[in-house]
């Protein structure tokens, strides 16, 4: 479904992503972990079309991606951002946020689709005409997920979708993402700094450090500690250390 080959992204003199290659099958999930500045989010933004300055080869469903994307691309690929407080327009109601993708793509039946989307992400119908500041962090993230699903995409790019949320809400959102994937056969690429979260959702994990993907490892091997790169081992140790306590 998604293939990325030798992706390079440059910010002025700094090469933030230095030759990253990975592939994700249809209906599967791929996780990218790394610390801040490792280039993990930059990969996602290049894939999503938010950052046009990249080189390499990326294809989605066999179509090669160009720096400028077609409207159809944006219907098929959507993104969920880290900060649910920043990813919703502060002066627009949930209703408005959800109808926007439909209006842009000229999809009709807006009223029914919004009601259906709200129930799909388990938001009460009463939330429809609220402003973001009247919602909790978890509810906002559900709205952001519902908005991404409005155009019925095939690929969902998840940029730290739960790291700004409380742990109990994180569990709810992760379950929701798993259910949606089951139901809609979505393909996920998820970026996170939390190894346990990534391993929970993604069977394959890429570990990034300094702009390179230093290791690709299955979630199973990661759990069992069969790591090959010292950075992966470091991250794993930090993550398990607290679990044992």
């Amino acid at each position: 479904m998604i293939s990325v080959q030798d992706l390079r992204v440059r910010f002025g003199p700094v090469e933030a992503v230095r030759g990253v290659t990975f592939a994700v099958g249809e209906g599967s999930s791929f996780g990218i972990v790394g610390e801040s500045g490792s280039g993990k989010s930059t990969v996602l933004r290049a894939l999503s079309g938010l950052n046009p300055d990249w080189s390499g080869r990326m294809t989605i469903a066999g179509t090669a991606l160009t720096p400028k994307r077609s409207r159809d691309f944006f219907r098929r690929v959507q993104m969920v951002f880290q900060d649910p407080y920043g990813s919703l327009h502060p002066r627009q109601t949930v209703d408005r946020a959800l109808s926007e993708p439909l209006l842009v793509h000229g999809i009709g039946d807006i009223d029914r689709r919004i009601r259906q989307a709200l129930s799909e992400v388990a938001l009460p119908a009463a939330a429809r005409f609220r402003y973001p500041h009247q919602l909790s962090g978890g509810q906002r993230q559900r709205v952001a997920i519902a908005r991404a699903l409005m155009s019925e995409p095939e690929v969902l790019l998840l940029d730290e979708p739960t790291s700004a949320l409380d742990v109990s809400v994180q569990a709810e959102v992760l379950n929701l993402l798993a259910d949606l994937q089951d139901r809609r056969k979505l393909t996920y690429v998820m970026v996170s700094h939390n190894l346990a979260v990534v391993a929970h959702l993604c069977p394959m994990v890429g570990v990034m450090q300094g702009g390179e993907m230093v290791e690709m490892i299955s979630a199973e091997d990661l759990r069992a500690g069969r790591t090959r790169h010292p950075h992966t081992a470091d991250l794993r140790r930090l993550s398990t250390e607290l679990e044992e306590a």
């Binding site: 742990v167 391993a199 929970h200 979630a219």
Partner: peptide
């Protein structure tokens, strides 16, 4: 509940318990 709903590396769960 706070402890159980955390995804962990050592004890994988198919579904996270919700509080």
């Amino acid at each position: 509940g706070l402890l159980e709903c955390l995804p962990t590396l050592s004890h994988p769960k198919l579904r996270l318990p919700v509080m």
